[in-house]
Design a protein around this nucleic acid. Structure first.
Lengths: 217, 217
DNA sequence: GGGTGTCTGGGACACTTGTCCAACTTCGCG
DNA sequence: CGCGAAGTTGGACAAGTGTCCCAGACACCC
């Protein structure tokens, strides 16, 4: 085995663990399966990581990290009306689940496992806080780009959005009914869109007039 | 051990398995833990049940069975306006989750486990079909009792409702934020209520006029 | 009452699991 | 060059897993 600092080996193990959990489920991500995936001898595991549970913590961080970026670009494209953008964003999420179902299922499994494991009991709350924050950022960005204001607290709406994406994912994983999932998103869009109100007259800061409000970051 | 026909012993084992899965998670529901819970010797297990996976199938059936009744009564009580009934029903579900979180989590774990297990791969679809059917029956009953008509296909709405309850459950299990879950249900209620339209003039069957349409079953 | 089929239950099997050790090699610095 | 720190590794451990066998006990019907 090539020589490798422990820290580096640890992230390689986290990536391997994610690959195994994606393919075969979290319960199959044993220390032996993980090192096999990473092409390491078993003894490397506990040299790089104190315990399997610690590694799983890394895996969650690994996924939650890269999650926020992908969806944001979708919003900025074709800045149409609210329902269209909403539907397109939800659709993009579902598409992501469809192309990597194991990954998303692994995240559910990880959450459930963490909830049952004393040393990881704090993980799910942090994980979902990140989900909620991501959704909130998305909704706030939508206000800007669509020139609207949400008629309910954005943090509450964000939680509802995560609720819906989670629910749709779970349902689709269970029966793989693409058409039904799409119809659910249609309905969810129709249910969510009315919370968007046209923005009040773009508040001009009296002391600092702008030529065009479109130039605001 | 008292003598007991194998069939009877099997349901006792299913109940014990549910108790263990509720308390300690599905992964802790080993054959030994289950028979200990049931107060049986280990060898009784495979006399009554061919395999552990078969037993888990029973457990799902056990829960899905008793699920439909509880919520229905809620609807019939105080037949108020749509948002109130909607909110009350969703609230009753959340309350159920709150009082038995392990149970609901066990169902999620069971679904995830089944999805990863070839012999149980058919379970999740059937399980969710039941959920959807239950929600659909509820929504249809609501049409009658509230004198409304849903402006979207009831089966689609039912899937959205299950999506939301699943999502709320998952989120609450993760962070146990009661207030946030309640706010999510408030918002979901506001989002769902507009799908209810006043029923069209109560269709009188021309050949069989009724004195009062309220007496219809 | 005898015998057949149902039920009991102790014990074992083959295997997998997370974790650790102790010996070995390699690196980098003085 | 020498030496301590860092990295590598085969092998083992104790515990736990699902499943099965087999000898015995009991119930019920002819």
């Amino acid at each position: 085995m090539a020589r490798m600092p422990a820290a580096e080996r640890r992230v390689a193990l986290a990536r391997a663990a994610l690959a195994v959990a994606d393919r075969d489920g979290v319960h199959a991500a044993t220390t032996r399966a993980i090192v096999a995936e990473a092409g390491m001898p078993l003894s490397s595991f506990h040299y790089a990581v104190p315990s399997r549970d610690e590694l799983l913590r890394d895996v969650v961080a690994l996924v939650v990290e890269g999650e926020s970026d992908a969806a944001l670009a979708e919003l900025l494209a074709g800045a149409d009306d609210v329902p269209t953008v909403l539907r397109r964003t939800l659709g993009a999420y579902l598409e992501h689940v469809r192309t990597a179902p194991g990954r998303e299922q692994a995240m559910f499994e990880l959450t459930q496992y963490a909830l049952r494991t004393a040393e990881l009991a704090d993980l799910p709350a942090a994980q979902y806080a990140r989900y909620h924050a991501t959704a909130e950022a998305l909704l706030t960005a939508a206000e800007q780009h669509l020139g609207i204001r949400w008629s309910a607290p954005v943090s509450d709406l964000a939680r509802l959005v995560v609720t819906i994406t989670d629910g749709v994912t779970l349902g689709w994983l269970a029966d793989r009914d693409d058409a039904a999932a799409d119809r659910t998103l249609d309905l969810a869009t129709a249910a969510l869109a009315p919370f968007a109100h046209p923005a009040p007259a773009p508040v001009p800061v009296p002391s600092a007039p702008r030529t065009t409000p479109l130039e605001e970051a």
